[in-house]
Design a protein around this nucleic acid. Structure first.
Lengths: 344, 344
DNA sequence: CAGGGGTTCTGTACCGGTCAAGACGCAATC
DNA sequence: GATTGCGTCTTGACCGGTACAGAACCCCTG
């Protein structure tokens, strides 16, 4: 059976193709009676609606938005925090009449999602500025909003107040009386090396800001932290680094880049017979669901992931509508649970 | 600045538009030397490559595949099992040169992702046959592969061997000596009602099959189970139903629809002072990461989510390539951990 | 030297819609 | 009664590519 197009319907009803188009896309442009007849003919022929690809070309809008990632999807959404972000973003876009398309880094040859997929705009999640994907999107002049990074001047960004959160976390430890404090920081994913080589520290926005925040408080108190690095994955990386930190220093408290690091450290402490918070205080970051489920529940810095996602979508929608928007910085709050206490 | 198209480049280089198109899409159709010149001119003009929307219309393929969901994305990927499926599917598609677009049920007016988004094919995840989205996709004649359901005759499906897994789980309890066995089954999401009204049971494929499997073993042993229903969400639903089950019957073991149900039941048991597995044996399903992290670690039926995702993508790719494929049923295996023991 | 076959490039017809402007009829306005 | 205005429908151009059939050219063969 031949393909059904606007023209088939137009021929059947005896009107112009444009009128059929209007019946679907701009109902106010024709009489209700004729529209009914057209729609009836359409269903009779098994026509579902204007072809999305053709419409996209003609209208210049596709109705879907890309989410640019700097890793494979499995890695990107391995933890609950990023999975929640994805979900929130997808739902918020959907509510705006937009679908979400995942743009992972290319695997293999010839196909570069950020270059070859039709999208109206893109959310850039946790990608550093040199990511190839960002380059493609820029050249295509696709409107972007970045999340958890600050990629380009003039590109709206959604961040959390990492610095203030980190500062509060460090201050919390200081207030409890800790003076020998460790930091479990994030290592650059591309640079393997010893956890003590601080030049390998990740230069991602959250890492930079959190480090600044910790130092805000520690420097003011004259405390020099013991810094160690761990890769974000695998999970045991943080555990191993944590064990080394605990074994080679006499820190009584540790500030962690993320809750996952904190959980790893928790395991390290357990394996070394150090009780938390009795012998060791631990502060996480993010308020990952895992942090309240751990034993003991973690003191951490809470960020509102869902709000971050919705805000990003809001910025994107405004940008698409031509309303210029500034960067947004969402608040963070210290959540004190049971993994911190005064030093022994 | 004017939009750069194939024609702009063609004019600049002094060749036909078609040749420029070939330079990008079919390098073997022109000399290497000319191709270099064209590509150089293209970069000079800031041309990134053929416009995806236009290409999609002309080629009849968009390069992206939809994932049809029967709930919002937040709900769909709330647990680790489905999140892993999403991630695996996305990565497997990416490896095949395809992007993934999420097709959630419409929210609000006018925009129906399954109808209005340009896709080449769709994966249908855990949607029952009446889902509106499936109807759109069918009318659009978009190739589909279903996951965890068996929607249509002739539509390739990927399922796990729910029945054999459930049978093994039930047999395991029988082998341990249990004779008073409960079942925590899944309630239809659309039908609220008491957990004892068995007519409200979900008619999803996994539920039907698991029930059959449990009965395979139980019937053969002459055991009549105590069945209760719980909604998949919120998590406390299973806990409440579990509490009711434990309070009103004298079951010594319970077969759960999923690990999340098992975790809820675990909490219920704890709150009633019943020790697991001393006073109560619990078997889950799926081998959710949560199941090995729980205390005690859960005996459960393992399925390979990643394999399921990859298989589905394989079926889809074959279907797109015109190679007809049959339904696939992946194996399940019983994993005995510490939540099951002989009755007291 | 005619003819076959390969490479390289071009011309034309689509792909299936939407946009913007115009034509037509009819009621309201002056 | 001519003008204006509105609702309704049509016309023609265009969105930015790709498929396919051929034309021009070169080399090789018999």
């Amino acid at each position: 059976m031949a393909k059904v197009t606007l023209q088939s319907i137009a021929d059947k009803v005896g009107v112009s193709r444009m009128t059929v188009s209007n019946a679907f896309s701009r109902p106010d442009q024709l009489s209700a009676e004729l529209r009914e007849r057209i729609l009836a003919a359409a269903t009779e022929l098994g026509y579902v609606g204007p072809d999305p690809a053709a419409r996209a070309l003609a209208r210049g809008r596709t109705g879907s938005v890309g989410l640019l990632l700097n890793e494979g999807v499995s890695e990107s959404f391995a933890d609950a925090v990023s999975a929640e972000l994805l979900a929130t973003v997808a739902d918020a876009l959907n509510a705006e009449g937009l679908a979400l398309t995942l743009l992972a880094p290319p695997r293999g040859d010839g196909f570069f999602p950020a270059r070859d997929v039709a999208i109206d705009a893109a959310l850039v999640y946790s990608c550093n500025a040199e990511t190839a994907g960002i380059g493609w999107l820029e050249k295509r002049q696709i409107p972007m909003v970045t999340i958890d990074e600050n990629v380009r001047e003039g590109v709206p960004a959604v961040n959390i107040d990492d610095r203030a959160g980190a500062r509060a976390a460090a201050q919390h430890l200081l207030d409890l009386g800790h003076t020998r404090i460790g930091i479990l920081a994030l290592q650059d994913a591309e640079k393997p090396g010893p956890s003590t080589d601080l030049s390998l520290i990740s230069d991602s926005y959250p890492m930079r800001e959190r480090m600044l925040g910790w130092h805000d408080a520690l420097d003011a108190a004259g405390v020099t932290p013991e810094v160690r690095l761990a890769a974000y994955r695998p999970l045991v990386a943080a555990e191993e680094t944590g064990r080394e930190l605990l074994a080679s220093t006499d820190v009584t408290a540790v500030l962690c880049f993320s809750d996952l690091f904190a959980v790893g450290l928790l395991r390290a402490a357990e394996s070394l017979g150090r009780s938390v918070p009795g012998d060791l205080s631990i502060v996480g970051f993010d308020d990952n669901p895992a942090s309240s489920a751990s034993r003991p529940p973690l003191t951490t810095v809470r960020q509102d992931i869902a709000e971050k996602g919705r805000t990003a979508v809001g910025l994107l929608v405004d940008t698409l509508a031509g309303r210029a928007r500034e960067a947004v910085r969402l608040p963070t709050t210290l959540v004190v649970r049971d993994s911190t206490a005064p030093p022994a």
